[in-house]
Write a protein that binds this DNA or RNA. Structure first.
Lengths: 168, 168
DNA sequence: CGCTGAAACTACGCCGGTGTGGTACGCCCA
DNA sequence: TGGGCGTACCACACCGGCGTAGTTTCAGCG
């Protein structure tokens, strides 16, 4: 029933316009992994994991990153991001990106990157925001706590929906 | 003779197109502080300090930051950036920006910013790059070391030389 | 099995940030 | 004071990333 999210819901939850969601899907940035659009009238179905990705994109945009850079960062993210999202730190710099799990490691990377611009994002916070938004936008029944569990599971069970990314 | 830089030279040194330099000057992002344009045929004169600002902008752009965010960051930078450029770390996040001088302070800020995107730049490296570029593009006479002094002064005038620009 | 509403699609426009190319104007030197 | 050259200016175009409006088509219901 509610393991998936419609396009509109997804947009609401992560705080973007439908137009953005649509554009990102078409241009291969974040596609619904449960059900892609198959023409006019069909329906996209976003997974919880997709919401996380959408939220990361939005967060990056809000912080002043160009969409182009976000695309490049994501080609890296998809390969290296496992289930343990909350504890990871994402660092992007131009076209490159790095994932860091440990705080000390993070500091190390920062010091090494002298002179080079570095963009940093704590993924744990992103996940929390999405969870909160889902609960807030819940139509009553889910407020019963059902979905408060599902997200935790979703990140563990999520297989990797691989789509053909066309170049970058 | 060489305390200032023409528009074209400035663009060369920092590695941007003249069109960008022109656009940025017109739109009030980085203006030549020694002599602004007063109409067609006039000449802009950039100071060394201006070069640093230009280079910071370019570095931010290269790292994937939107020009709009750069503008906002600079309105903060101009107020708070003193002489001690080399030891400062610039952190921007969307519209806000922070300057950090100390490494521990930096780490503190990063941890505090859980979930919020953070963009980080070490200004010391930027200065070094500019200095190198100036030397490399020198037409002989300046290679005599005249200008190698002026930049050095800028960073030495600082009250506390915390971290030398050697790292990078 | 047909209706209907929602969501995907299409077409068009806008704006910021630049590339290109041509023009006009000062600055410097003779 | 005039000539040449460097440079600012101007007009035009383009492209990405959307907003807006209108159209098409499917999903799900009765």
């Amino acid at each position: 029933m509610s393991e998936h999210f419609s396009g509109k819901k997804a947009a609401e939850i992560v705080g973007i316009t439908y137009r953005q969601l649509d554009y990102w899907a078409r241009t291969d940035l974040v596609r619904p992994s449960l059900a892609d659009a198959t023409g006019s009238g069909s329906r996209r179905r976003y997974s919880y994991r997709d919401l996380l990705e959408l939220k990361v994109v939005k967060t990056l945009l809000d912080s002043g990153i160009k969409l182009e850079s976000v695309r490049e960062a994501f080609s890296y993210l998809r390969d290296h991001l496992g289930e343990d999202i909350a504890s990871a730190q994402l660092i992007i710099s131009g076209g490159s990106a790095i994932l860091v799990r440990d705080d000390d490691e993070l500091i190390d990377v920062l010091k090494r990157g002298q002179g080079v611009m570095t963009n940093l994002l704590s993924l744990g916070g992103v996940q929390k925001e999405v969870d909160d938004a889902i609960v807030h936008l819940r139509p009553a029944d889910a407020a019963a706590g059902k979905l408060a569990v599902a997200p935790a599971k979703a990140q563990k069970a999520a297989p990797r929906p691989r789509r053909a990314a066309s170049g970058g």
